[in-house]
Amino acid sequence: MSQGRAMIPPGSTIGILGGGQLGRMLATSAAQLGYRCHIYAPEPDSIAAEVSHAFTQAEWSDTVSMAAFARACDVVTYEFENVPVTPLLTLGTVPLLPHPRALETAQDRLTEKQFVQGLGGTPAPFAPVDTLAELDAAIAAIGLPGILKTRREGYDGKGQWRIQSAADVEALDLSAQPLIYEGFVDFLAEFSVILCRGADGQVRYYDSARNVHENGILALSTIPAGEPIASQVAPARELAAAVAEALDYVGVLTLEFFATEHGPVFNEMAPRVHNSGHWTIEGAVTSQFENHIRAICGLPLGEPGLAASIAEMRNLIGDEAAGWADILADPANHLHLYGKGEPSPGRKMGHVTRLVL
C-alpha cells in the first residue's frame, strides 16, 4: 500500500471506497476528466454506483472481493472516514490516496485531538472517558456544560450527548465503547478550512465558509464568511497545512473550526471532500471534487478561487427536497438531488447552491 506519485492518465480507473453522495459527486467529476470509477460499498443500493462504470457490493471484511476490486483499479480513494483500515492491506500495490494514516488519525476523536494539539493546534478541552467515574472526573476538571461523544464513528450529531447538569449524567447509560468528553466552546461562528494538496506537495485553499448547524447537521454554508471568521482564517490554514504535511496528504482535506474571541479552536477533521465545500461545484473555478481527482491522479491542481461574489449552499434535509420545483423557479439556484429513496428526518437528500455574480 504505497503512496503513488506518478501521473495516472485519463482513461484509467479510479476506485472509490464508499457509495454515498460524496462518491457520486467524485465520480461525476472524474468522468468529466475522462476517468472511469469503480465503487466498493457494503450497501446494495449505491447512489455513487448509479453514475459509475463498475460496482462491487461487498463487506469491508471481504478480503477476496477487496483484492479483486484493487486489481481492477489504477488508484483508490475514499469518500468517508469510517472505512476500516485493516482490510485495506489487501489492496496490494495500488496507490491508496490519501494515505490510510489519515483515516487512522481521524477515526478516533481522542487520537485526532492529540495529533492536532501536537502540531500546535487548539482543540476544545477534552478527556477520554471509559467509565462513569472517569466522566465525573472529566466534568470536574473541564466543567459544564460539555458534550460526551463516541470516540469512533458518529456524524451529523449522532453518538453525542449534551451534558448541562448532574441530572444529565445520571440519565446516561454508558455503552462499552470508548468515549471522549469535550468542554463547551463559547464560539462566535463556525467555519471550515478546505485545502487540496497535490502529489507534489502543492497546496490550494478554498475560501472558508460560515457554517450554520441545526440539530447537529450542517444546514447552511455562506461565502464570504465575514467577521470574525475572516481574521481567523490565516492561523486555521496554517494548522491545516501542518496537518496535511504531517500526514503526507494527497487530496482534499477539511478541518472544522470554531471562531472565538481568542482565535480559532479546532473541532474535527475530515480526510475527504466535505459537505461545507459543496458550493464549489458552481461557486469555485475548480470544485473540490475535481481537485481531489486531479490530486490523486497526479494532475496539476485547478484554481480554487470564487467564481461569483457570493455563494450560499443549503442542505436539503428530510422532506425539504420535495420543494424542488420552487427551488428551480429561482434562476440563481443550482439544484443537486442525490437520488436517495424515501426521505427521513435528518437524512441529506440533496443541496442547493445560490450564486450572486
Rank of each mutant, 00 (worst) to 15 (best):
P125D: 09
D173N: 07
F289I: 15
H53P: 00
E245Y: 04
N267D: 03
L220N: 12
K348Q: 06
E282G: 02
P264F: 06
N267H: 08
V185Y: 02
G154H: 09
I317T: 04
A176K: 08
R210L: 06
C37N: 11
G157W: 12
G159A: 08
F55C: 08
Y338C: 11
W324M: 12
G118W: 00
E312M: 04
R237L: 00
R152D: 06
F55L: 07
R109P: 15
P98W: 13
E312L: 00
V185K: 05
V169P: 08
L132T: 05
Y181V: 15
I327A: 04
G92Q: 09
A102L: 12
W161D: 11
E342N: 12
Y338V: 12
G11I: 01
A325W: 02
A167W: 05
D200E: 04
G118C: 00
D248T: 14
R151N: 08
Y155L: 07
R109K: 02
A106R: 06
G318W: 11
L299D: 11
F184C: 03
H53D: 01
G298W: 05
T63I: 00
L357I: 10
F258A: 03
G283T: 11
P84G: 13
T260V: 12
S175Q: 09
P300V: 08
L220T: 10
T90I: 14
G92V: 09
P264S: 11
A141N: 06
I317A: 10
T86N: 07
A176E: 06
T280Q: 04
A329M: 06
T13F: 10
Y35W: 00
A176F: 04
V94E: 13
H351N: 15
A41D: 10
E312C: 09
V265I: 15
E190T: 02
Q107G: 15
F55G: 06
Y181E: 11
T86P: 03
A48W: 06
L335W: 09
Q232I: 08
A6H: 09
G15S: 13
E214S: 01
A133N: 01
A295D: 01
A219I: 13
S61K: 13
G154P: 10
P224F: 10
E50W: 13
M1G: 07
G251K: 07
V352P: 06
W324G: 09
A225S: 10
Y205E: 10
T131M: 13
Q117R: 09
G18H: 03
S221R: 09
R71M: 11
V252T: 10
L26C: 14
G339Q: 14
A230Y: 10
A141Q: 03
V116P: 00
T13I: 07
Y249S: 13
H38M: 04
A199E: 08
A225Q: 03
A199Y: 03
C297G: 03
E214F: 01
P128F: 00
G143C: 01
C297F: 01
K340V: 08
T28S: 09
T353E: 01
L132E: 02
A259N: 06
M269H: 01
K113R: 06
G92R: 11
A49E: 13
